[in-house]
Design a protein around this nucleic acid. Structure first.
Lengths: 63, 63
DNA sequence: TCGCTATGTCAATGTTCCTTTACTATTGAA
DNA sequence: TTCAATAGTAAAGGAACATTGACATAGCGA
């Protein structure tokens, strides 16, 4: 499952730490999700979508 | 996090076992998600959305 | 009544998600 | 060149998701 987190973050000039803080998760979690180590939980996916004001489907892509 | 699984299933007259089979998960997992014991993983949420031809946001509701 | 289906639940186990702590490497500014 | 910020990774532990197998209950039709 791919995602556009890195791009969305870059568009806002946020570091992984910035994003982690806004999502209330660790920086390592953000890194793991961005680098494809694992997918976020559904609740976290919703927080991400809410933060970027996008739908989950616009951020996470079926592979 | 609430969801409309039970209603969607009823609309199609599927048992929990039927749905589980289509999603390739156990009947207990379907039951646990329906009864709110836990939320599905993001990949499973996508399979559910695909099966019902709906968006994740149309099935899972922020509480 | 008997048998079958559906639902709900439990225990035990395994996998995935998320954490903290820590270390390395790279880049850019002072 | 030195320092700080960023990114990536790893290990170890805890929490959440998902499994199999089992059991109880309720409803329905033969």
């Amino acid at each position: 499952m791919k995602n556009r987190l890195k791009v969305l973050r870059a568009e806002r000039d946020w570091s992984q730490g910035d994003l982690a803080e806004r999502l209330k998760v660790s920086r390592q979690s953000v890194n793991a999700i961005e680098t494809g180590k694992y997918d976020p939980s559904l609740p976290l996916a919703f927080r991400i979508a809410d933060l970027f004001d996008l739908s989950i489907e616009e951020i996470f892509l079926r592979d």
